[in-house]
Design a protein around this nucleic acid. Sequence first.
DNA 1: CAATCGTCAAGAGCAGTGCTCTCGTTTTAT
DNA 2: ATAAAACGAGAGCACTGCTCTTGACGATTG
Lengths: 241, 241
Amino acid sequence: MSAGRTARERVRAELTREITDIARRQLAVDGAAGLSLRAVAREMGMVSSAIYRYFPSRDDLLTALIIDGYNALGETVENADAARPREDHTGRWMAVCHAVRDWALAHPHEYALLYGSPVPGYKAPMDTVTAAIRDTVVYGRILSDAHRAGALRPPGGFPATPGSFSEDAMRVREVMPDVPDDVVARALAAWTGLFGWVNFELFGQFNNVVLDPGTAFDHAMRCHAALLGLPAADALPVHGK
Amino acid sequence: MSAGRTARERVRAELTREITDIARRQLAVDGAAGLSLRAVAREMGMVSSAIYRYFPSRDDLLTALIIDGYNALGETVENADAARPREDHTGRWMAVCHAVRDWALAHPHEYALLYGSPVPGYKAPMDTVTAAIRDTVVYGRILSDAHRAGALRPPGGFPATPGSFSEDAMRVREVMPDVPDDVVARALAAWTGLFGWVNFELFGQFNNVVLDPGTAFDHAMRCHAALLGLPAADALPVHGK
DNA sequence: CAATCGTCAAGAGCAGTGCTCTCGTTTTAT
DNA sequence: ATAAAACGAGAGCACTGCTCTTGACGATTG
C-alpha cells in the first residue's frame, strides 16, 4: 500500500492495477476461459509481450484475480455481518447468506472462478488461502459468538455425530472456537448447503423449475439456521439493503 | 441403437463412438479446457477437419460428453437406489448420496463438467435436460414413496414454508408427486446440500481442514435425511459396496 | 557530470488451437 | 450406369500463450 518511492515503482504499480482492472472486466464479460493476455495488452495499447513484465504467466494474472475475488466477497460478507447487532446471531447468519448469494449473482463469472470447477492444471498458491477463508472466518465467528452467548440450542432427534469426526472438528474449530463437535458437523452441512444452493442457482440447475429462487433460498437458509440451533428470527427484513 | 443399415452408417456410428471415447479419455486427464479436437483427430490418425464431419463444433462434442456424463451418473444413482428394498427410504436416500459422491470422486473432470461452472458462452441444449434429471427423478421418487407410505415425519421447530413458494413447489412436484410444500422446500435444501458438499470436497475447499470427508459426509447426509423427516436408519452399512 | 546497470516496450517468431473452404475419392441411392 | 451425397485430406485464417532479442529510457552509482 506504500505509495512507491521511485517514479518507476509508481508507474509499475499503476500499470499492474490497470492490467488487473481490464482483466477483471474481460473476466466479467467472457468468463475465465475468455481472459486473453493479448486482448488485455491490446486494450492498453501495449504489445502482448510487455504484459509479461508484470505477470509472468496467464495463471499468475488469474491468481491475482482470484485473490481479488475472495477479498471482494470476503469484505462484502464482513460488512453484511458487521451491519447487524452482535447478539443477533440468526440475523448475522442470514445476512451472510444473502450477501454471498447477492455477490454471486452480481459477479457470476468471478464467483465461478472461486467456487466453480478449478481451471484445469491450476494449483492454488498459498497466497490465496488467507483471502479464501475471509467469509468462512466470519461464519465461524457468528457460531462462536452464538455458542458462547448460550444462544445455540441444536434441536434433538438428529443423528449423533460420529466420534471419528473429532479430529476434523478440531481443525474446523480454528475458525470456530469453542463450538462443540455436533454443531461443527452441522455447520459444515449448512455452509456447503449455502454454496451448493448458489451453485445450482447460478449454474442453471434450477432453470425452468425454481423460478423464484430468492424466496426458496431465504427459507432454506432459515432451515439451516434452525438445524444449527440458532433461534428463530421472524421479523427479519426480507432481503437486501 | 439399431445396427445401422448401410455400411457407411455403421462405420459412421463406430467412428462417432471412437471420437467420444477418445474425447472422454482426454477429458478425464486434462479436464474440459484440455479437450482438443486436433488431439482427438491425431490420436485417430485422422486430419483435424475430418472430425467436423461428425461433430459440427467443439461445443457439440462437449455436449455429447455432457449427456453421456449425466446418463452415467444417473444410471449409477438408479442402480444404487434399486439395490435397496423399496420401503427402506432412508437407506435409498443414503445410497443415492454416496453414489453421487463416489461417482464424482471417480470421475472428477466429468463431474466438474456437469456441476461445475458452465463453460463460458455454452448454452445447454434441450437434449441434455432429460439426461440431466435422471438422478433428480430417483431422488424425487424416494421422497414420494416415503410420503405415500406415511414414513415422512418432518421434525417441528423449523421455519414455516412461505406461501409464495407454492408455485415453485408445484413445478418441483413433477418429479416428486404428492409431496407437500414444506417437504419440497426442505428437499431442495437437502439436494443442494448434497451437491454443495461434493463440490467443496472435489474442488478443494476442504483441503487441509476436513481430512476425512467421507465420515463427515455420511453424517451430514443423515442430518439432511432427518430434516426431510425420513426415519433414522441406524444399522446401515457404513459406506460403499 | 558521465558511465553503467536494470527496467521496459516492441517486434518477430514458435507451437498450438477452432474452424472454413476446396478438392479429389468413395459409397450410396436412383 | 449415373447422379448425389458423404467423406478424408490438405491448405489456410485468425487467434492464443509464451520466448527471445533488440534498442531505448531512466535511476544509481563512480
